[in-house]
Write a protein that binds this DNA or RNA. Structure first.
Length: 308
RNA sequence: GGUACCCUAGCUCAGUUGGUAGAGCAACGGACUGAAAAUCCGUAGGUCGUUGGUUCAAUUCCAACGGGUACCA
């Protein structure tokens, strides 16, 4: 895979825009496989709410990283990066083009650029810090961060408690400031990358999202959420489509309110994804219906027509 | 038909003892390094129901009209 003719083609875009369908058509055309880059389609229990490829679709094209984990498993972007990269080493032995398809911007960037080497989080420490947080509030945490890592304190969003938590955790775990690990260096990849993003008219996208939520409830999303209720505090269940139904099951909302909230939060999520992909100027934008334009774009870039 | 109350941002509602107005949600934009479908930040948007009166000045007080809600007949 050290040759320069290996291509990773990224297909990104907001949820419900049509990535899955188009990716399968493209993979069939180029006779290759798909690596999923959607942080929630990794989990096998999330069958309905994350709109993973259907069994028929999975049969058409070889897929990787779809429903490989349990919601009980701990997982993170760094593991994803490492596992995808070693899989790519294998796959590029027999293929020249591979698709990376999904909507999780951070996961895609981790594969394309890499992320810095840092310690994993320590559940015990986090539990302890959570207790401190409840007791002392966010100001106490800010002060602690300022003491442990003035550099990060200067640069971080001090209103974002997840960021503060993470930085403090790394400092306490390693005895070194978080900023020591944060090098922001782009890793070299022994393959070329072509980035494609999909988008469509906003109202049309919202319409598709709203309809898809209705279809999910018809398919049994509520039952699925009920069956996963006992895992509601696990990270993978902090997901649009599930968290709202957990609140419904706790009588915080009516069912109708919960479903409206799922639609609203999915629309919001789509916008957040667009913000992420817009920032990266390497993306070339297409409408999901422009399949032949996309095929030309890929072929023009890779300069070859056979892929075996 | 009578009485009372209401009409302010796309929605739900604050508010101005008279000096042309805000919150939450929605909309739109942005940030993003082991929680990322997470977690945060910002922007815009109103002839304050209509018409008239009082006043230096009315979204605010008064009247009529229109629309709504509740109660009484």
């Amino acid at each position: 895979m050290t040759n320069n003719n290996s291509w990773l083609v990224v297909l990104a875009g907001p949820t419900a825009v049509g990535k899955t369908k188009l990716a399968i058509e493209l993979a069939e055309y180029f006779k290759t496989c798909i690596i999923n880059a959607d942080s929630r389609q990794l989990y096998k229990e999330l069958q309905i709410g994350t709109a993973p490829p259907t069994p028929e679709e999975l049969n058409k094209v070889e897929h990787y990283f779809v429903q490989i984990l349990s919601v009980k498993d701990y997982y993170n972007v760094s593991q994803f990066e490492n596992e995808v990269i070693s899989l790519l080493y294998e796959l590029f032995k027999t293929r020249k083009l591979i698709f990376l398809v999904g909507g999780s911007g951070l996961y895609i960037d981790a594969v394309c650029n890499g992320i810095d080497d840092m310690p994993n989080y320590d559940p015990e420490l986090r539990k302890e810090l959570l207790i401190q947080y409840e007791k002392n509030g966010i100001d106490w945490f800010r002060a602690l961060l300022k003491k442990l890592d003035p550099n990060t304190y200067q640069n971080i969003d001090l209103k974002n408690k997840n960021r503060i938590f993470r930085a403090v955790e790394v400092c306490l775990q390693t005895g070194k400031p978080y900023s020591y690990f944060l090098k922001n260096t782009k890793k070299h990849r022994p393959f070329k990358i072509l980035k494609i993003a999909l988008n469509r008219n906003r109202l049309e996208l919202y319409d598709i999202i709203n309809n898809r939520v209705d279809k999910m409830t018809e398919k049994g999303l509520i039952e699925e959420a009920k069956s996963l209720y006992s895992f509601k505090n696990y990270t993978p269940l902090k997901t649009v489509g599930y968290k709202e139904l957990f609140d419904y099951l706790e009588n915080k909302y009516s069912l109708d309110e919960a479903i409206d909230l799922i639609k609203r939060n999915t629309r919001k999520y789509a916008r957040k994804q667009l913000t992420w992909f817009r920032r990266d100027k390497d993306y070339r934008w297409f409408h999901p219906n422009d399949k032949s334009l996309i095929i030309h774009y890929i072929e023009n870039n890779i300069n070859e027509r056979t892929f075996f």
